[in-house]
Design a protein around this nucleic acid. Sequence first.
DNA 1: TACAAAAATTTCGTATACAAAAAATGTTCC
DNA 2: GGAACATTTTTTGTATACGAAATTTTTGTA
Lengths: 244, 244
Amino acid sequence: MNQRQREPKRGPSLSRRGKDGDGAERQEVIYRSISDAIIEHRLKPGARLREDALTEVFGVSRTGIRKILQRLAMEQLVTLTPRRGASVTRPTADEAKDVFDARQMIECGLMPEVARRISEVDVRELRDMARCERQALKDGEQSAAIKLSAALHARLAEISGNATLADFVDRLCSRSSLILAVYGSAGHLGCESHDHDDLIGYLEAGNGERAAAFMSRHLKAIEASLSMVEEEDKAPDLHTIFSR
Amino acid sequence: MNQRQREPKRGPSLSRRGKDGDGAERQEVIYRSISDAIIEHRLKPGARLREDALTEVFGVSRTGIRKILQRLAMEQLVTLTPRRGASVTRPTADEAKDVFDARQMIECGLMPEVARRISEVDVRELRDMARCERQALKDGEQSAAIKLSAALHARLAEISGNATLADFVDRLCSRSSLILAVYGSAGHLGCESHDHDDLIGYLEAGNGERAAAFMSRHLKAIEASLSMVEEEDKAPDLHTIFSR
DNA sequence: TACAAAAATTTCGTATACAAAAAATGTTCC
DNA sequence: GGAACATTTTTTGTATACGAAATTTTTGTA
């Protein structure tokens, strides 16, 4: 009722009736859209996110967009500069180190408990995710693979039963995706395709210590694959492009 | 122009020129006011936080208040119920366990690095904080003691140099204050007064392992001091109170 | 007096309006 | 021709307005 015909061109059905829930869910959908776009590298670090543009794309007013932007800023996926607006965060090398150190501590520390609590259905679900990830990699769909990898790590943490730590891991994985986008070498994705399957195997066997050690190596391998050079493309963009 | 005479006594200069910064800082001040009030138990778990009331108290419009409320909700200090508004979070027993397990993992895991990086000035600052805390305890100022204790733990994590993990610890400490408010027995505060001094001693000596072990015992002691009974005061409030 | 239905009030959710700041563009003067 | 300044346009920050849902109060009836 409150949103009548403020979108005269597209037709009135988009924002009101199309099965979009009661508004609170709509916000969640938009949040996930932007979040996914960032995690999948379809929005690259440094990309500006103007409020008006997002308003047009999603058909909600700036009030709603700003709420979402603020939430993304808290998860450090976007950076809010006082009077310059929002942009996709460009992680520094220091931040990258912090994130991977944190993952090392939390994800490895969680493995014993995960091994203790993992169930048959969990294993099946995880193997399915790993299979999807491998398939995506084979098909050259980097975006999908990156998202699936992060989702797998996050799901793993959830199984521990500690919602707080699972939430931390979720955020660290999202930020890791951003870090991969900036410092990852093209073609070589962070996670080896068979790593996750091996890890699931250790957990299924109830071997928490082994799983933790493997996770540690896994994360170290990802971090080692990064090329930590902070490139800054403020203005040189055009110069380098048109120089020859 | 936009804020008429909501502060008739102070004159119109308060919100723009009166030394209060450019608005962004003002928000921070208000955020901290509410946050502190919650951490110090001056706002008790379950207390409602009506937007209009906060609007009047702080002299900013609902837009600003809601931004702050949303931030507090993300840190789990307040709970936002869809059409009921905001209230101070009342942690469940499960959440309490998660928070202390998380602190156990992160704070203890951080101690070795803290022991490695701690400096003379850090030690002096920490001892000063511990002294203030002990003093507050002696003076019966529970509110101040609780806040100082949380601040000490948070500062400790900062010294590790990992901003991400320090941020996690900061949030966990805030939530711990809430947990203390609900499950803590009156009179017996979580931290023993001399514990923190001992801990600083180990760190100063560069003994990370010992510090980690001590921190573990320290946190266990706090958790053990809680009485985990979930009282619920939905409606029976008035009935039980006036029944005899 | 007790219970139920309806009106009234409160309070939140969202859109819009307006002002201020920054960026971009055009103009003028040297 | 280039740099400094003014103007216009864009974009963000904040307040307010309006509508909907929920709670409370009132009122009528049994």
